[in-house]
Design a protein around this nucleic acid. Structure first.
Ligand SMILES: [Mn+2]
Ligand SMILES: [Mn+2]
Ligand SMILES: [Zn+2]
Ligand SMILES: [Zn+2]
Lengths: 139, 139
DNA sequence: GTTTTTAATTATAATTATTATAATTTTGTA
DNA sequence: TACAAAATTATAATAATTATAATTAAAAAC
């Protein structure tokens, strides 16, 4: 079974015209689940695709966002990161190792009195601190 | 009563050496509560202080952050914004008018099973959507 | 299956944001 | 006032992003 074929269908299903570059970019984000930046995506893929242009990465990410098949997260420092998991979930960034961990939380448990008549379209919960790996290592 | 005098004391209390520029920058963020970007702060203050350098704004914001008298919020688009309210609180950005609203929420009500042994240092909750002003105007 | 049309990718240039460095000015202290 | 230290400013360098045009690839028409 070839994953690229599945991604090809997935893109078409979401009104994204498929191409070799687009499949590879989506594949990278979806498989690695590492919340990569534009530069990470480019640097990793240019190894496989030497002709790849960073412009294509920018354009493709913009298109994927418009079609809602990826989400953009700006956890800190002006560094935008991308995630193929578009469901609402939380992100934890470790100050030591820099890794970003996903976590689930119950959105409905948060009570908003001040903005209860506002139309909510997107929710982002970011937590920064030290992950358990780095915490135990320091002892 | 002169607010600048109070800010002067406040800065000293927080181990920040006071200066005319630093007082004006803190004053702008604290009084306007508009979560300004570097450019907003510079553009507004350069009207009063024609010799002001953007470098000073960058340096001062970095210093204020280190001393924890402001917080940096990166709600979207690679645009960093600054807030003199350093207590944990949520931010709502309206897609129509662009304004950012503060709201309170009870952090303890959110249950994190996956990261329950992680050391939490900072929490940011961002919500995007349409504010009630813009929502009623569109009807 | 070749030609034509359209769209995507690439290469390049332009713009913007940020950081680094050195010169100048200000502030505090003797 | 004179000196030393720090902050501010001016300028240059770097990095990130966007815009534009040329090239290549894909799709549609014939
Ligand atoms: Mn995620
Ligand atoms: Mn706020
Ligand atoms: Zn870690
Ligand atoms: Zn609004």
């Amino acid at each position: 079974m070839n994953l690229s074929v599945n991604i090809n269908d997935f893109l078409k299903l979401n009104e994204v015209k498929s191409s070799f570059q687009r499949i590879k970019i989506y594949e990278y984000i979806a498989e690695n689940k590492n919340h990569p930046t534009v530069n990470t995506i480019f640097d990793e893929l240019v190894k496989q695709i030497p002709t790849l242009s960073k412009m294509t990465v920018y354009n493709t990410l913009k298109l994927f966002r418009e079609k809602n098949i990826i989400q953009e997260i700006s956890i800190e420092d002006n560094e935008l990161r991308y995630d193929a998991n578009v469901k609402t979930h939380g992100h934890f960034k470790c100050r030591k190792c820099g890794e970003i961990f996903d976590f689930e939380y119950n959105n409905s448990e948060i009570v908003f009195t001040e903005i209860n008549n506002y139309k909510i379209e997107e929710t982002q919960l970011f937590i920064k601190g030290i992950c358990s790996n780095c915490f135990t290592m320091n002892k």
